Simulated assay, not measured.
Amino acid sequence: MKSIEDYVNLEPSFYQGVLDHYDDLFVSTVKDVEVTKIDNIVIYATGSSSNAAYGALPFMSKVLGLPVQIQEPSISGNYLMNVSENSLSIAISQGGHSYSVVELVQRLQQAGHVVFSLTSELDSPLAEISDHVLSMGMPVEEMPYVSAGYSVVILDLILISLTIARQKGQLSEKEIKDYLQQIDQIVEALPSIISKSTEWVTKQLSIFSNAKRLSFVGYGATYGVAREGETKITEAVRISAWGKELEEYMHGPYLGLNNEDIVIFIEPNGKLAERSGLLKKFLNQHIQHVYTIYANHNQSLLEHDLELDLEIDELLASLFMTIPVHLLAYRLSQEKGIDLQHSAYPDFDKITSSKI
């Protein structure tokens, strides 16, 4: 069975595969749906799929010029079924077995709503009941702790939004080409990013291995990265972890600061970089370990920080900035002797019926 680290190293090939089959994966299915009347999009996802959706959300909102929101399938299915007539739903379940997603898609379709179901398993329960299935463009991830699948979902959502934007006349062909060129630039840089991230994790591992709580802070597209940091550290390392949006952290959680905390900023060098710097200035006066992962070159780089050195649109930063986070979660789990190959609670799905 492959590890999280194995799947991180497969991301360049998975990304390239999705780009190579872009038309087959998304364009033909989107063309079958009348998207010109769409006035809002709702993404239904939970766990890492939800984190990925937050990573793609700012880009989608910009290129589509529409309200785009993310909802938890269980809350939506039980309490929030007031879906507008011209809403497009995108339901995500990487394995296609999520009970809450399958149930919600059935209800939405029965009510006459258009739903795109995004999954990597095309013979799954989700795919079987869906009117419009979109393949993620990668094999089913063998690991129960998804990493490459999370990253590919971000790319998929970005490409789906570009496809819809083209069909609605929201973007020119030149604008779409420019975005695709930037994505190609990211794919080309991924091996170097993985190498730099691996080296950084190795150097800092002794510090991180003593952490009682890790907090990740991001904004814009990297809010999804911060959320994924919380998810993966909690799942794989099994210590307390937070993943907060910059302003969200500044409105309460900072009051729970402990001297032993480690805070990692996911910095895309974007609109809120100055605001982020002010928070770091405060934290450095109160705790010992404040780290920053920078998307590109930064003059504020400290010896223990990580610079991924990729000059790119901040809204695409989530396509590569989770790599060091996933590698950190994996290496810490191995440092602590945690077995990620087998479920710690094999009776969970059976008792809770969370999977079909």
Rank of each mutant, 00 (worst) to 15 (best):
E34Q: 08
I351T: 05
L272N: 09
D32M: 15
D32Y: 11
S209G: 05
H132T: 00
Y54N: 12
G256T: 09
A91V: 13
V68K: 08
P324Y: 08
Y254P: 00
H113L: 15
N296Y: 14
L126N: 06
Y223P: 01
F282I: 07
F208M: 12
F348T: 13
I193F: 06
P12L: 04
L134E: 08
N284W: 07
H113S: 08
L171M: 15
E142A: 09
Y150C: 00
S206V: 06
L214Q: 05
T29A: 03
I287H: 06
I160T: 01
V42M: 09
S3N: 00
Q181V: 05
E199H: 14
S161R: 03
I293R: 01
L126K: 13
Q170H: 13
G224N: 01
D23M: 07
M250N: 10
S206N: 10
Y223T: 09
K2S: 14
N298D: 15
Q167V: 05
I312Y: 02
Q341W: 06
V27F: 11
G112Q: 10
Q341L: 14
L10T: 07
L255R: 12
A273Q: 14
F320L: 04
P58C: 13
F14Q: 05
L80E: 12
K336L: 10
S93I: 02
H289L: 00
H132N: 15
A45N: 09
M321A: 00
V102R: 05
Q288G: 13
V153M: 02
S318V: 09
